[in-house]
Design a protein around this nucleic acid. Structure first.
Lengths: 349, 349
DNA sequence: CCTGCATCTGACAACGTTGTCCAGGCTCTA
DNA sequence: TAGAGCCTGGACAACGTTGTCAGATGCAGG
């Protein structure tokens, strides 16, 4: 009899069965359930002697409090959710880490997920986090309609959007000055004598991409330059297509003498393309990239502070939870132009 | 009376109070509690008509199932924990993302935390994750004693260590071939005529650092070269000290003609230092870095596949949870030498 | 010896969900 | 039409913890 289901038994027993509970600890220590709870939570009103016995029992059994039950009882989970586009993107690493540090300082854990730029997946993730009753959410949105969050907001889930604004709901937002940064970057090129300037960026349905494009157009207009259609390429980030887009701009009837790249992924590819050309083409990219200073020429960029975005957002989140922060705001962090050479090249026609 | 605690009331009511439960939904739909549960979980045995009524009520109230309660009842959380060193390190981004993808494919969420290379913080994080009853743990250990995990293992928490082995317990481990990779990299330099080769790496208490050092020594010994003390610098990763270490090796009584770097952070700084020198010093680094191919000369590296590490580890984790995997194993993934120029420079005395 | 007080302890309900089990109503067949 | 069998729905306990409250104990003072 025992050997027939020994395998299954062992498995299920091993996996779920024998996790000791406070009841077990109490039995072993010969005290009441609540006394164990008191010891575990460091509450007052337990004799040193009793406390010692309980602690021994805890140690002996390898007891760990079950936070699920605790959460159910107390209502707070001490965890926050972070939904971003892709953890593997070097831009999001520091942002995520900054959020984590603030969470840690507030005694919370971080649950995160990547939306892969898919609005449905974003919603799915956010709702899964809400089902787990995270206390708050930091969201880098992929979609542009967040009305599905209304019940959550009403129920008091703190929420801050980062990098891109929320769609169709009223919520805290922390952004970089994408418009101003791009405008300054392009103006910088214009200042060095360029008039035919190309722009390669992501789909304009992405807020940051749209803002940067707007910045590009504004700078051109300020300088009285009419932008030709062939100079802008939108919705393009994968290396192959960026490469093609860049080559076309450089070889068309009125070839560009400078290129502005809309994000770090585009930058990397464009830099690669330009390195293959003998003609010197000026370049400025949005987002800083590692080793940019060591390339020949150094890569001039409009840098945003990813860690500051994350930190600011997370701090606002916890201020919402404090009750210190009541009305949603939109915060815009400045960008910084870092000149390293590529953006200061003169036009070479 | 109402106005006296209006503020506090609003806050607490807003924050915890009014989250609808299945009971509320049941009341509104005029059905029993369990029927709502059935609808929410897509169980059979509910008329289309009843189901419709329940769904309407859910919609109207903005009900979301409380997973804490669910977990308490069912025993599984459908979430796994990932503890790594620093999310902001470009090496861990892809690893983390790979773990997340596997988790997603298995219907689980990912909770992660950074240990900042601090053993205590690692333990604190791991135990917090266990208290939340994650189903499994992927750990990139900072410490070298993991006996504190024994009760968890016994209780059936699936566990896989990545990048570095577990200390003093028997657990699954997924590693890169740090020893072989370093040995090959250094042998590559020797093959190009170098004999005085420097090594700059992290503290040898970190397993990967120790293994890479061992690989360096093995390659030197294989070639019959006696390593001078001044050629190795250990426990050094911050830019300032790496810089000093490199300068010293290059200017000592028997200056090195080549440098091997023990990880990506060291690589970045050494590349920077070498760029400032006119003398051509050969270089190979452990870990690939972005844009390495665009530098002059291109940076030769020993690359490990971070995503593969994460994927392999996570897959093993879920196989443990299946019950498919019963005995702990140690898996070693190969590294790849990528030649780009810097490692093929001849010695310049 | 009793009362009053302070200190410590434990019984019990509740959190929101799911599993078990049973009741009631229906259809189908003999 | 009675009985068997199926389908639908609901009552209830349980998961492991914490908050409430009342009981037990010890001690000092009358």
């Amino acid at each position: 009899m025992p050997e027939t289901h020994s395998r299954a038994d062992r498995l299920s027993a091993t996996r779920y069965g024998n996790r000791p509970t406070m009841k077990d600890v109490a039995a072993r220590a010969g005290v009441g359930l609540k006394t164990v709870s008191r010891v575990v939570n460091g509450e007052a009103g337990v004799t040193a002697e009793t406390e010692h016995r309980v602690k021994e029992a805890i140690e002996a059994l390898g007891f760990r409090r079950n936070d699920s039950a605790r959460v159910l009882r107390k209502g707070r989970t001490a965890s926050i959710g972070l939904v971003l586009e892709d953890l593997a993107d070097p831009f999001y690493g520091p942002l995520s880490r900054a959020v984590e540090e603030v969470a840690r300082a507030n005694g919370a854990l971080l649950i995160n997920g990547s939306s892969a730029e898919d609005p449905e997946r974003e919603q799915e993730l956010v709702l899964a986090l809400c089902a787990r009753r995270v206390d708050g959410l930091v969201v880098i949105p992929a979609g542009d309609d967040h009305r599905y969050l209304e019940p959550e907001l009403k129920a008091g889930v703190a929420t801050v959007f980062v990098d891109r604004p929320a769609g169709r709901i009223d919520a805290d937002v922390v952004l970089s000055d994408n418009f101003g940064g791009a405008r300054d970057g392009v103006a910088h090129l214009i200042g060095h004598g360029h008039r035919r300037i190309g722009f390669i960026g992501d789909m304009p349905r992405i807020h940051t991409a749209a803002e940067r494009l707007r910045g590009y157009r504004a700078a051109m207009e300020d300088a009285g330059i009419a932008v030709e259609d062939a100079w802008t390429s939108l919705g393009v980030t994968d290396p192959e297509r960026v490469r093609r887009a860049a080559e076309e701009m450089l070889s068309g009837p009125s070839p560009v003498t400078a290129i502005f790249a809309g994000n770090n992924r585009v930058t990397v590819t464009v830099v690669r393309v330009l390195a293959e050309h003998t003609r010197r083409v000026a370049f400025v990219g949005f987002d800083d990239i590692e080793l940019a200073d060591l390339l020949q020429p150094g890569v001039t960029v409009v840098a945003q502070d990813a860690a500051a975005l994350g930190r600011t957002a997370a701090e606002r989140l916890f201020r919402q939870l404090d009750g210190t922060l009541l009305t949603p705001e939109r915060i815009e962090l400045p960008t910084r132009l870092i000149t390293r050479g590529s953006g200061e090249l003169p036009p070479a026609d």
